[in-house]
Design a binder for these strands. Sequence first.
DNA 1: CAGTGAGCGAGCTTCCGCTTGACTT
Length: 781
Amino acid sequence: MAKNLLIVESPAKAKTIEKILGEDFEVKSCYGHIRDLEKGDMGIDIKNNYAPRYIVPDDKEKVVKELKSIAKKSGEVWLATDEDREGEAISWHLCEVLGLDPGTTKRIVFHEITKPAIQSAVTRPRTVDMNLVNAQQARRILDRIVGFELSPVLWRKMSMKNNLSAGRVQSVAVRIIAEREREINAFVPVSSFKIEALFTAKDVSGKQVTFSAEGKKQATAENAEAFLNGCKGADYTVTDIQVKPGKKTPAAPFTTSTLQQEASRKLGYSVSRTMLLAQKLYESGKITYMRTDSVNLSETAMDAITKQIGGQYGERYIQPRKYKNKNESAQEAHEAIRPTYMDSFTVEDADCRRLYELIWKRTMASQMADAELEKTIAKIQISTNKEELTASGEVLKFDGFLKVYMEDRDEDEITEEDGQEGMLPPLSVQQKVPLKEMKAIERFTRPQPRYTEASLVKKLEELGIGRPSTYAPTISTILKRGYVEKRDKEGVKRDFRIFRLKDNAVEKLLEQENTGAEKAKLFPTDLGLVVTDFLKQYFDDIMDYHFTARIEEEFDEVAQGKIQWNKMIDDFYNPFKKDVDNTIEKAERIKGERELGTDPASGKKVIARMGRYGPMVQIGDVNDEEKPRFAKLKNTQSIETISYDEAMELFRLPRNLGQFEDTDVVVNIGRFGPYIAHDKKFYSLGKEYDPYSITFDEATPIIVEKRAAKEERTIKIFEKEKIQVLRGPYGPYIKQGLRNYKLPKEKQDNAADLSLEEVKAIIEEVKANPPKRVPRKKKGS
DNA sequence: CAGTGAGCGAGCTTCCGCTTGACTT
């Protein structure tokens, strides 16, 4: 009898399942979605109730062809795609493509790749849930409409020629970054004074040790100084000691987003790097599936984990726990990310190994006992006034899960108290403690930190925007479009005041700290800011942080069969399309203009704005008789923050340094950075030169040197035909216009002897058989 | 490669969500 064909989404999964199911089944993978909306005309027949037009994309034809031929030879076809909206749709598309009846074809689901789960699934097949499929179609069609209607609006209204884009997910992601940047720009730090006293006491072994206590924060320098003066000559007495037990609880096993966050915090991996390494671990059978929003662990996994904990650390460390998802939008088609085998430790590649160890530890910790603490709080009375000081200490009584793993926190979650609590020496009530010194230290409030890739993912997940499979690609998209940049920012020095009480005298000190430094953070570009403002102005609902959550509710209703998907889309489309048409008709071109002041020389306005080639400053108006002056912003500058003085500085270019060999030497910044123009030729300036200050005497040697270097590279020139034979890093080559042509091996040695005819023949030859290139990827990765 | 800063308007770009693949300067 012919084997049955079982189709799953992932090939690695197919292999495992085939082993479990044995002889009766051949298990194949469809590699995710096999059909998508056609690109032309949105792929949707709007007038015909939004009927979708599906095609099999080029890169899926091979898979579909193979599945068709196997299906033909097989007994029954079983569909075992993931149990979520997308998985259900994939099953339906498979029916359509393979000519199966969705009403009778067997559909099975499981949340974990374990023998019992799969064997029991096979005993309870169902059929494709068309309501769920329709919810997916609605999701797909809405995203297509939003993306393919909004993007062209940007093409029309932006002067920049880049292939701009907008969408339900990416545009909100950019908005998050943009708004954080503006919060930071608008932030005014407020200072206050933290009171910190150092005392001495004997520890258990009788040795004198120092411990610290805190007082009430003082709002102003005057208050702080007065407080310290008020403590002169005081005695300090312990009045109360409280000892409280405390505990710490382990974090849930990893999902895609929490793995990305921890790998970023602990290992410094970018989101896409984490996914690449996790993919490798998954393919080599080391971990379970890495694109998941579930924190659930299978029964078999729980057994293996507790067994491992018991063997390695002892029974006391075991505490089995079931975790529940907080996230409402979670679809939980898979397990949490965990090692497939808890007793497996060999991972070859070092980067993979670090990620694997992180996953292993987190998984172990999730089933381990709480850490037990003892927290001590001592109150210390000041004899000269009513205020009191508080000393607190923490002692770990039982390490529990901390033996293995402790989750890191993001910057914005770290409070002032963190890291303060050390050990306290044994103290008793009525004990007098001698003061070493007391300080009032000025501290400033801080704005929220900029987002890292991983903290952006966290935010998106909280808002229910995007899915585990799209977090990394979304970040790539907004970086690639130039809406956002990932970079460091240097901090600035800031003075802060300290008052110190020591030996009954108060003195004032001034110290410096570094503030505002950022590493590998996401910054919006001017393009990102301007596009966000525009979309918010005209498409407020799409840009709303809760838009996705709201339509998800409607998709759920479609999935429950409460509403028709085309009705839902129709309700969305009509008002949306009106907004699109209205915007195209009425909205001005996007300029992001900002007035900076008046140019004293001409009396004309100085403005910063978006130009065709990016952010720029301009003196005068295009409608003036005299043409306006233009200058490009530097990479680190922004329309929003550039000052008048900085703008005027930019107009110092181009600078004419004087005459060399009877022609002008001009310094400017062009498309490819700073350069010297001389005698109709261009010479790039290296980083070591500043175009604003380079002198004539520095510039001329550069011209001479670069000219000589170029001559050395030139083998032969056919002036009339504008063809050059040049010496490059990979050997001699021919250059005609913008294109380069590689010389065939046998002609490389005597390139200088080439005739015009030979050169032309080579060009024709290369043109006829162009060297194969790596195909351009559609999405950044 | 390097002036520009808007627009002739040929024909093109673009979305989100599933999955992995692969050959060349």
